[in-house]
Design a protein around this nucleic acid. Structure first.
Length: 316
DNA sequence: CGATGTCAAGGAATC
DNA sequence: GATTCCTTGACATCG
């Protein structure tokens, strides 16, 4: 069986000693030019390994929006040519890239300041994809944000804030169900009011689903938010079940305790391949891409691909 | 060179 | 109201 699924991974390459971004402190100067050199090397690697999907580091342009470093705020135009080249390479290689901003990026915060700073980050990430010349399948994936004690008003605030965003962000933004506050049903509520596409996350859905939507139903509903002619994508992860090591300091001594996981939504090293095969049975007529969220990163994508191949399932 | 401290940022849970 | 967890290195500095 051939399935039209690309397997992707997030940010860091473990298969070779490559860097994903220039992570030095601000005193070392602007980072984007160096990060784009690294990104080119990662693209080389992806082509060699035939990996078709990759999430770029949110630190590609570290300090780009930091208020203390206005001298770094101009890095996009300064690197326009390199961005365009890298985007051309991605298009020719059929490489699907994305961003997934960090926990600090919150559109629905009650604080206007937090929201304004978040929008500044969304803005540069959307513009990077624009300047790379990528199509609408290259997206910026965001959660709905915090609840702030009132789920429904927090959800509504996301919609209000979305409507005020600039064109570039609105085109690139997609939403994902999270592991604490907002379910697939919440994302669908937002979709109905904004048209935003939804990235289904299986592990988050297992954790947060007060409406009791069946997994296959939730998956199909999310895929249905992507327009005809665009390939949807989802996140897939398996829960980490190993002991957690807890370091306790007692004066000068350190003691290490072990305990069961405190949360069941932490990512395992590799994706459970049997769970993935079962999950594929939900697949409707339509193809979609799969971003694996696993600590072993590219190694997890390659391992899953090899497993599937032995089972007679050929991914794209 | 090995050990230790630091990093822009938020939110939720707990005390 | 303050602290800790979440999660996580990589970088920077200290001894």
């Amino acid at each position: 069986m051939v399935v039209g699924v690309k397997l992707g991974f997030a940010v860091k390459v473990l298969g070779e000693p490559l860097k994903e971004a220039d992570l030095r402190r601000a005193a070392s100067g602007p980072s984007l030019a160096q990060s784009l050199t690294y990104l080119g090397e990662i693209f080389d690697y992806l082509e060699r390994r035939n990996l078709g999907m990759y999430r770029m580091s949110s630190d590609l342009a570290k300090y780009m929006t930091h208020p203390d470093y206005p001298e770094f705020h101009d890095q996009l135009p300064q690197n326009a040519e390199r961005l365009s080249e890298l985007g051309g390479r991605a298009r020719r290689a059929g490489l699907r890239v994305s961003f997934h901003p960090s926990q600090y990026i919150l559109l629905n915060s009650p604080s206007d300041d937090v929201t304004a700073r978040s929008i500044a980050d969304l803005d540069w990430q959307a513009r990077v994809l624009d300047m790379m010349g990528l199509g609408p399948e290259a997206v910026v994936v965001l959660h709905l944000g915090g609840e702030y004690g009132e789920h429904d008003s927090a959800r509504a605030r996301f919609v209000e804030r979305f409507e005020r965003l600039n064109e570039s962000i609105r085109r690139r933004l997609v939403i994902e169900n999270d592991d604490v506050s907002f379910s697939v049903a919440d994302c669908l509520w937002v979709h109905e009011r904004t048209g935003l596409r939804i990235v289904f996350d299986n592990l988050h859905h297992a954790a947060v689903n007060p409406e009791g939507m069946a997994e296959g139903e939730a998956l199909r509903a999310c895929l249905g938010t992507w327009p005809e002619g665009q390939k949807p994508k989802i996140h897939f992860a398996s829960p980490a079940t190993q002991f957690q090591l807890i370091e306790k300091r007692e004066g000068k001594k350190k003691r290490v305790e072990q305990r069961a996981p405190s949360r069941w939504t932490s990512h395992s090293d590799f994706v459970d391949p049997f769970a993935f095969l079962r999950f594929l049975e939900h697949r409707p007529g339509r193809d979609f891409d799969v971003m694996l969220e696993a600590k072993a990163k590219d190694l997890a994508a390659i391992a899953l691909r090899d497993f599937l191949r032995k089972r007679g399932v050929e991914v794209e």
